[in-house]
């Protein structure tokens, strides 16, 4: 339902702007161009998206993701102290974070939800649950394949040259987001 309002808003704003600036004919042409651009974009990024999903599958079946998440588990105890007493929470949490790092969104969400359900105490979010959600809203993906796919679809010669910038940005935004959650948790009592 939210999307219906967003879409309606976009149509309304462009209609009103076109009336004000007198660019009605351009608006009509743009609507059809845009629809075609959607198809073109999806087709031109298809190759990269499919290839990366294949690699993601391979990382799962060969046990790479499992290995990384086992290595990560000790690190989690600082951020999520109840991992110490709940082993299966630790397993789903580290699988969630590992899938996020590798950009396997389809695998990350179910594991994250499993962890969230185990953390749940009543209908108020606990500090740990807030931190988990903040960590998931701040992207920590190491290789943003969809963006690279769009870039190469648009003729970029080195679609991955933004990686260092993405890493710095993701690391800082996730780190500061969790730090903010930590601070707010001290003052914002349940």
């Amino acid at each position: 339902m939210v999307m219906s309002w967003i879409l309606f808003g976009m149509f309304l704003i462009s209609f009103l702007c076109a009336l004000a600036t007198g660019s009605g004919s351009a608006l009509a042409a743009a609507s059809l161009e845009g629809a075609q651009a959607g198809v073109t974009l999806a087709v031109s990024m298809a190759g990269a998206v499919c290839l990366w999903s294949g690699v993601g599958r391979l990382l799962e079946t060969t046990g790479v993701t499992g290995w990384i998440s086992r290595r990560m588990r000790p690190l989690l105890t600082r951020l999520f102290p109840s991992v110490k007493t709940d082993a299966s929470l630790g397993a789903s949490l580290s699988a969630n974070i590992c899938a996020n790092l590798l950009g396997l969104g389809n695998a990350a969400t179910p594991m994250g939800i499993q962890a969230a359900k185990r953390m749940r105490r009543g209908d108020t979010a606990t500090d740990e649950l807030c931190r988990l959600v903040v960590l998931n809203t701040a992207s920590i993906q190491l290789i943003p394949t969809n963006v690279a796919a769009v870039r190469s679809a648009l003729g970029c010669a080195a679609p991955f040259d933004i990686l260092p910038a993405v890493w710095i940005t993701s690391f800082l935004s996730a780190g500061l987001g969790v730090a903010a959650a930590w601070l707010l948790g001290k003052v914002w009592k349940q």
Partner: peptide, 22 residues
């Protein structure tokens, strides 16, 4: 998605912290 699945209604400071990260 997360709070819906976990049945949480009071999200406390999650939204401000997440928007700060954004």
């Amino acid at each position: 998605v997360y709070f819906g699945a976990a049945g949480i209604r009071k999200t406390r400071y999650t939204v401000p912290a997440a928007l700060f990260a954004d």
